[in-house]
């Protein structure tokens, strides 16, 4: 097992792929999944840094990120469902108005 820095580079690439997905895709659920992907990329960087520095704090941060991601996914999917009920679409371009 060589340097964890390669994993930091990998997490950078994964984060950029997720960001490209957020900007390009218009399906709200796919955008949501890309956000999850970006969160996971950051988690991977946390774990790699934790390994690099020999310190457990990074892994604790990942644990808290998972908690926040769980709450975020519950609320986010409820919002997507509510928007779908309101405008009958999950296309992000369809719900561009701030009223319903």
């Amino acid at each position: 097992m060589s340097s964890p820095v390669t994993y930091i580079a990998l997490s950078l690439v994964l984060f950029i792929i997720g960001a490209i997905g957020v900007t390009l895709r218009r399906n709200a659920i796919v955008v949501f999944m890309c956000i999850e992907m970006m969160l996971n990329a950051v988690n991977l960087a946390f774990v790699a840094f934790s390994k690099l520095h020999g310190n457990l704090d990074g892994q604790i941060a990942v644990l808290f990120t998972m908690v926040i991601a769980a709450a975020e996914s519950a609320v986010g999917l409820a919002i997507i469902l509510a928007v779908f009920r309101s405008v009958a679409s999950v296309d992000t371009a369809e719900s561009a108005e701030l009223k319903w």
Binding site: P4, Y7, V47, K51, Q59, M66, A69, A70
Partner: peptide, 23 residues
């Protein structure tokens, strides 16, 4: 691979399990 075994397990349980089932 990075030897954080607990996080690997909770990643499978929380993310690949719970969150993806929700999605």
């Amino acid at each position: 691979v990075l030897e954080s075994h607990f996080l690997a397990v909770s990643q499978i349980v929380v993310y690949a399990g719970a969150i993806m089932v929700l999605v």
